[in-house]
Amino acid sequence: MRQRFQQVMALGLLGLVGLASPTQAAWPDRPVTIIVPWGAGGAADALSRILAPMLEQEFKQPFNVVLRPGGSGVVGHTAIAQARPDGYTIGLGTVEIVMLQHQNLAPINHKDFTPFAIINADAGGLIVGTDSPYKTAKELIEDIKRKPAGALKASGTGQGGIWHLGLVGWLLDEGVEPARVPWVPSQGAGPAMTDLVAGGVAFVTASLPEGRAMIDAGKARALANMDTKRLALYPNVPTLTEATGTKWSVLTWRGVFGPKGIPQEVSDRLVPALQKAHASKEFQDFMRDRGFGVAWMGPADASRFMDKSYDDFGRVMKASGMIK
């Protein structure tokens, strides 16, 4: 009797586990973790959500997305860079890869990563809550100039992150001291939008696609788009140049990266799979529906691009006084 119960228990466990997942040979022969350095609801989160199932289908292995937000992307990017370079931990890296070292936030830069592909690029935006008094970017900047310093606060990403740079660059271009608008660091665009809707900050400088869930739900309003041309997603939203006359524009980008030293064998399998996923109708439709800008750079292009980008950001951030 006793034995029978052990058998029942053993069978029970056997069943529970046995139902979990089938497998195959070569890389990847077990689940792969995709680290996302930003919070839920942001664009990085959304991109990983669409890519993971496509890669799963390609490789017949689970691709588990793990969000590791915090510290202006430091936490997640450090986690990717320091992962064991065996191909079982990869990540969705963002523009911060080339910014963190300049900002003195983390001793890592693009040289600590193995790029697989850069798949998307988006411009910043200007978003307010539905009950905000500001209807245009012009009204907003005038109020910033008029009201006491610190009266209006902005958010969108971590301290010194790309959208913080977007704000500072814009303010400088309008001749406003950047310290007049204190930055509230958030764990990404998603949490910043939530805080905007809850009335925690006056405006958010994240990209419009990142604010889309709230904008379309009628809880937030897009004032401008920090690109050189209007977005297909919101053709009625003016560019910042049209709205206030500034020449400022800012772009972010996202891609798939691994830690430095990933075996060539992994890249050889992963890059074509990413390219296939990227070219698929499903992915292209998703990007268009969400309003995300599509880009494609393979490992070599991405490397070159990041080298240049790294130097550019160093220059701009120094000029803006964000770093010394």
Binding site: R68, G70, G71, S72, G73, V74, V75, T78, A79, Q82, L105, A106, G158, Q159, P185
Partner: peptide
Amino acid sequence: GLENPAGLPRFVFGVTDLMS
């Protein structure tokens, strides 16, 4: 670990496993 608003490693004493 690193999970704080500034993303600074705290109380890790050089142990990489404690970073997260």
